[in-house]
Amino acid sequence: MATIETGLGTVIITGSSGLIGSAFLAHAGERYTELCLDSKAPPRLAPKTAHIIPCDLTSDENLHQALDEVRRLGHRRIASILHLAAYYSFASESSPLYEQVNVRGTEQLLHGLRDFEVEQFIFASTMLVHAPCEPGARINEDWPLQPKWSYPKSKVAAEQLILRERGDVPVVLMRIGALYDDHCHSIPLTQQIRRIYEKRFVSRILSGNVTHGVAFLHMEDMVTALALAVERRKELPQVTTLLIGESETLSYDELQRTISRQLYGQEWVTHQIPKRLAKFGCWLQNLLPGADPFLKPWMIDLSDDHYAFDISRARTLLGWEPRHSLRTSLPSIINELKLDPEGWYENNHLRAKTLPSQ
């Protein structure tokens, strides 16, 4: 491959094949030279300015080979690093991959970038690093940290590592809400919609407080925030922590009522059950032959958590405001399911055999 010679700023993206990475590439177009450090190519059509460089963050040797390729292509000055690559799974509460990918992979990346001129390092974190709040309160960037399971714990560890190892490189820590898009692509939301669509018994019960909920974030608003952070990199403080999410948090009960009304023309009442009973039910479900349960016993302790955002810092520093809301997006998400159930299930990685008879 010839050395890339353009006047565009260079952006390195880890995890470019993921939902955020591929959405950012589509949004950015040809404004930058995008160097995609990933183990596979983005699933969507990438702009002509994007170049895929094979990279495995868990391998120090492989990462250094990828960065050597960046140098060979003539890129020593990097406008921004978008560190989006991460391990994330609801299959189990813990996994060694949280440490290997989210923490050690971040450390190796930072060390490998030391002889580059880096103008900015953006890290995709999560709202789950924070302690939850009560309805009526709003979390801001100074809210206490209280990660409750391995994924957010790994993000806190990575954030702290970045602050220690950044040197003079300005950093942006983006703590983002629960992501979704026009086709859903949110595992918890997909599962909630699925339970109601399939009229499962568990769709009518919850172990947590039904008046609580979490802050969501549309993918288009997410990539807009990333793009604004890159564009304003020279105006931001050396260390910038931002909460990125919608300012309205819908309660679990409101989601239940909205989804059931959209699907069946009536609002379902959700009944709260004791946590011990819910854990036993989850454990029993996981033992059934051929079962495909999403809910796990360890999730029950998180069911009361409530997250509502104060996004004033993102408004001030980025001029960012979410243009979407889950409230207005849900009807089109549900309508897509009703029009093409099989396609919706496939698009959201659900087992089609659980589809109800039409």
Rank of each mutant, 00 (worst) to 15 (best):
F280T: 07
R72C: 10
E107V: 12
I81Y: 00
T241N: 14
L145M: 05
S16V: 01
L255Q: 11
A178N: 13
R104Q: 15
S154K: 01
A66H: 04
D142N: 14
A46F: 07
L128R: 04
W149M: 00
T10Q: 06
L326C: 12
S95W: 04
Y264A: 07
T6E: 11
L206F: 11
R313G: 06
Q238R: 15
L317S: 12
I273W: 00
P322F: 00
E235C: 15
I300K: 00
K40V: 09
V156R: 01
Y252P: 08
S95M: 03
P293D: 11
V214E: 07
T49L: 04
D305K: 06
H83S: 01
K338S: 10
T49A: 02
K148P: 00
Y151Q: 05
T10S: 09
A225K: 01
L236A: 09
E246F: 02
S16I: 00
V70T: 06
Q256L: 15
F123D: 00
I333H: 01
V129D: 00
P356K: 02
T106C: 08
R104W: 09
F90W: 13
P147K: 00
F123R: 03
P297E: 00
I52F: 12
L67E: 00
W143H: 11
Y180C: 06
P322N: 05
A157S: 12
A86W: 02
A79G: 08
L145A: 03
D142P: 07
A41S: 10
I311N: 08
R175G: 05
P132T: 05
I300N: 01
A28R: 05
F116E: 09
R31S: 11
D60L: 12
K148N: 07
S332H: 10
L35A: 04
R233Y: 07
A227C: 15
L243V: 13
A178M: 14
D38C: 08
A26E: 11
I259Q: 03
S332W: 07
K40R: 12
N209P: 04
L97V: 08
A291R: 14
Q120K: 11
D305L: 06
T224I: 15
R195W: 14
L67R: 04
G177Q: 05
E34H: 13
L110N: 01
T126R: 00
I139C: 07
D301S: 10
A178Q: 14
L189T: 06
H51A: 15
R31A: 13
Y88S: 12
K353A: 15
D115C: 09
E321I: 10
T6K: 14
F201I: 13
R175C: 05
L35T: 02
I12N: 06
R204F: 10
A278V: 03
R166E: 03
V118D: 02
E141Y: 09
V214L: 13
R315E: 13
S325C: 10
Q160A: 07
R77D: 08
E336D: 11
A79N: 09
F24L: 08
S80G: 12
Q192V: 13
S325L: 10
P237A: 08
I12M: 09
K155C: 02
G112N: 03
Y264W: 13
